[in-house]
Design a protein around this nucleic acid. Structure first.
Lengths: 71, 71
DNA sequence: TCCGATTAGGGTAATTTGGGCG
DNA sequence: GCTGTCCAAATTACCCTAATCG
């Protein structure tokens, strides 16, 4: 059975990365807020060669689910 | 990323979230009252990494219709 | 290389939280 | 029991310019 999840297949060893805007929309906060979370060590991130932050999809989705009260 | 504003369809696994102020305006009550509804278990919610509450849009809209009706 | 959209910074308002009171 | 308001602290939102992304 093929997984009916996201059609993204980065491949082995590669992590799906989300832009600050994507993370911001998931939490319904400002992209700047996501940046503060990263600076506070609440979010892991990688940086592009130009200095922009990219966030691991797995990390973000996990935190999003953990934030639910029904969890 | 084109500015394709999509107020709906946030994506799989993601729920559209509203701020306490938005919910408060929809119900015409104080944001504090919305917080009490959440604490009382009458309203499900998620937390930002900073501790602020975000409420599922569909949940709020459903309760809003129920309250408007003679339920 | 040019170009639109996004992001990084910093600084300042506005909102939210939690408790308590009426 | 339920709601609105006051308070202080913390968090988030919006303002700007310059640089980066695609």
């Amino acid at each position: 059975m093929i997984s009916t999840e996201e059609p993204q297949s980065p491949g082995p060893g590669a992590t799906e990365l989300l832009t600050p805007a994507e993370v911001a929309k998931l939490f319904h906060v400002d992209p700047k807020t996501v940046t503060r979370w990263a600076q506070a060590g609440k979010l892991t991130y990688r940086r592009t060669l130009g200095g922009h932050r990219r966030y691991p999809r797995d990390e973000v989705m996990r935190l999003l689910q953990e934030s639910a009260d029904g969890e």
